[in-house]
């Protein structure tokens, strides 16, 4: 029952191929809760913390995309250059747990756990992120929409791991909003990320905690793009924002659980959508 500690990506590929049953350990903020409280019995673990390549991030030279390593912690996305380039991701990161959790938890860990309440995930969905994955057969890219396939289920194959996430840098407005029972240390009851590309007149909205996966409200997006101009300098009719919220709520698929009710979540997600759209024009 060892902890295997690879020091670089090549060692990680080799160790994970030799131990396909092993569990990957990133920041530990999800996994250790299962061990401490839910009787999870770890066997072979592969620790990702020393794999330096996973903690790096870079911007493509033509400034069109940012690539963020799976091991980058939320604390590093909240402020600085990543926050400037992808403000919605910074906003989402800042709502995760507490400073202690954000120092440990990582983007890759959020994708590994793949909870519908994962705070970074609506941002990845709204921006159309590509997940770079490495496995025994080499690299492959998975669109986020194909990556998350169910509640805490992703499409990683055995011995595959998330290397990094690539996001387009969008001209325009983007924001993340979340409803929970407190301002700090809270798992979302409903969350949403809205991206408005004011050059292209394009909008995307992705919803968290209101369905088994992150939901892109495609019908509401199309309706909005037909109903009003989203380009820079245009005005928003408040009744359009209200109707957008109503249509987004219709596309959510929330459930009753220990954290909230389906009715409340459906209401809240509509309010968040309306609010984000309104903010994008202010």
């Amino acid at each position: 029952m060892p902890v295997l500690i690879p020091r670089n990506v090549d060692e990680l590929v080799e160790v994970f191929q030799a131990n396909p049953q092993a569990k990957l350990l990133a920041g530990g903020t999800d996994y250790m809760v299962e061990v401490n409280l839910h009787g999870r019995k770890p066997e072979t673990m592969i620790s990702l913390r020393r794999v330096k390549e996973l903690t790096e991030w870079s911007v493509r030279t033509n400034q069109s995309r940012i690539t963020i390593g799976a091991g980058v912690p939320y604390a590093d996305m909240e402020v600085g250059e990543i926050a400037r380039l992808v403000p919605a991701l910074a906003q989402a990161a800042r709502t995760v747990g507490s400073p202690q959790i954000r120092a440990a938890g990582t983007l890759g860990g959020n994708l590994g756990t793949c909870s519908p309440a994962g705070d970074s995930l609506p941002v990845l969905a709204a921006l159309g992120a590509t997940v770079h994955v490495i496995g025994p057969d080499g690299n492959r890219d998975i669109e986020f929409a194909d990556f998350m396939v169910g509640v805490k289920k992703n499409s990683l194959q055995p011995s595959e791991f998330v290397h990094s996430v690539s996001l387009p840098l969008v001209e325009g407005w983007q924001g993340y909003a979340k409803v929970g029972t407190r301002n700090a240390m809270v798992i979302s009851t409903a969350s949403a990320c809205l991206v408005r590309d004011s050059d292209e007149g394009f909008v995307a909205i992705a919803l968290g905690s209101v369905g088994p996966t992150i939901i892109r409200a495609h019908a509401a997006e199309s309706w909005l793009m037909k109903s009003t101009s989203l380009r820079g300098g245009s005005q928003l009719d408040p009744s359009i924002a209200q109707e957008f919220g109503r249509r987004v709520a219709q596309e959510s698929r929330p459930i009753d659980d220990h954290r909230s009710t389906a009715d409340y979540r459906r209401h809240a997600i509509g309010v968040l959508a309306q609010r984000l759209l309104t903010r994008s024009f202010s």
Partner: peptide
């Protein structure tokens, strides 16, 4: 024991973290 209360806060490599969420065997080095 789930990272909510902070009463187990320690510093690991200059970062304040919840020690209940650190696997001890992974804290070598």
């Amino acid at each position: 024991e789930q990272g909510e209360c902070g009463s187990c806060t320690v510093i690991v490599d200059s970062k304040a973290v919840c020690s209940c969420l650190v696997m001890a065997a992974d804290a070598v080095d």
